[in-house]
C-alpha cells in the first residue's frame, strides 16, 4: 500500500513535468484543440446539411461522436510522449531513479488526461456555439464527460505500450492514426449504423467507441426517440458497456505497459 502511495506521488511529479511542457509549448494544445474545432465545424455545416437524424438536430447528435473521437486522439499523446522520452534518453534517467516502475506511466497518463480535459472544455464551447445543448441534468452531463475521459484514460495505457515498443514519435503518430481513424469512423459517431453493409455493421455495433458515444449521447440527453440505437447489448446498455470496456482495456494494458517499461532501453 505504501509503495502504491509512493508511486502515485512520484507519478504526480512526472505529471507536473509533462504539464510544464504544455505550458511552455502552447502550440501543442492549440493544435490538439484546433483539429476538433475544425471537425465540429466541418461535420456540423458540411455533413450536417446532408445527414438527417430523425427527431434531433444533427449538430446535437454529432457532438458525442466528436468528443469520443477527439479524446481518443488525445490519448495517443501518451504514446508519442513516451516514445519521445525514450529517444531523448529521459526514460533511461527515470529508470535509473529509485521509483516504482509504474510511476512514469502513471504520470504520463495523468497529464494526458488533464490535456484531454482542456480539449473537452474547448470543444464544448465550440459545440455550444454551433447549437449543441445538454438536455440532461448536471450530474448526468458530468457522468457523460467522466465516461469519455475514463475510456480515453484506458486507451492511454494501450498507447503507452505502443509508444514504448515503437520508440519513434513519428511512427507512433502514423500507426495510431491508421488504427484510430477507421475505428472512430466505423461506429455510430457521425452517422447511424443501420445502413452499413453487414460485417461493418456488426463491427460498428460492437465497437467500444460506439458504446462510449451512445453512452455520452444518452447522458447528455442528445438521443432521439425516433432514432433508437440498434438492438445489441453494448448499445442498449451503453453506460455499463463503456465502463466494462474501459476496465478490460486497463486490466490488459496496465500490466503490459509496466512490463514494457521495465525492459525499455533507449536506442
Amino acid at each position: 500500500m505504501n509503495g502504491f502511495v509512493e508511486a502515485l506521488a512520484d507519478g504526480a511529479v512526472v505529471a507536473k513535468r509533462n504539464l510544464i511542457k504544455v505550458k511552455r509549448v502552447p502550440d501543442l494544445i492549440v493544435f490538439s484543440t484546433l483539429s476538433p474545432i475544425m471537425f465540429v465545424l466541418l461535420f456540423a455545416y458540411v455533413f450536417g446539411s446532408a445527414i438527417e437524424i430523425p427527431g434531433i438536430n444533427y449538430r446535437e447528435f454529432l457532438m458525442a461522436g466528436i468528443f469520443a473521437q477527439t479524446v481518443l486522439f488525445g490519448a495517443t499523446i501518451t504514446g508519442t510522449g513516451l516514445a519521445e522520452d525514450m529517444q531523448k534518453g529521459i526514460i533511461d534517467r527515470f529508470r535509473s531513479l529509485p521509483i516504482a516502475r509504474s510511476a512514469v506511466l502513471i504520470g504520463r497518463t495523468t497529464s494526458d488526461l488533464v490535456n484531454n480535459v482542456i480539449v473537452i472544455v474547448v470543444m464544448s464551447v465550440t459545440g455550444l456555439i454551433v447549437g449543441w445543448r445538454i438536455h440532461s441534468s448536471f450530474l448526468e452531463a458530468l457522468a457523460g464527460f467522466g465516461l469519455l475521459l475514463l475510456f480515453a484514460y484506458a486507451v492511454s495505457w494501450g498507447m503507452a505500450v505502443v509508444g514504448l515498443a515503437v520508440r519513434s514519435p513519428e511512427v507512433v503518430n502514423n500507426a495510431s492514426f491508421i488504427v484510430i481513424f477507421p475505428l472512430t469512423f466505423i461506429a455510430n459517431t457521425f452517422v447511424g449504423t443501420t445502413n452499413l453493409p453487414g460485417p461493418l455493421k456488426a463491427f460498428a455495433e460492437w465497437n467500444p467507441i460506439s458504446a462510449v458515444t451512445q453512452a455520452a449521447r444518452e447522458l447528455f440527453g442528445n438521443t432521439s426517440p425516433q432514432f433508437p440505437p440498434p438492438d445489441v447489448w453494448p448499445l442498449k446498455h451503453s453506460v455499463v458497456a463503456s465502463v466494462v470496456w474501459s476496465v478490460v482495456i486497463l486490466a490488459l494494458f496496465v500490466p503490459l505497459a509496466i512490463r514494457q517499461y521495465r525492459k525499455a532501453v533507449a536506442r
Binding site: 512520484d10 510544464i20 511542457k21 531523448k88
Partner: peptide, 23 residues
Amino acid sequence: GQYAAVDENLTGFENLDMVGRLY
C-alpha cells in the same frame, strides 16, 4: 549518459528539482 538526458522544456532548476523529488 552519453546524450544529456535532461528535459528541454524544463528549466535547469526544474530538471534538478524533479530529480530530487524522485529521489
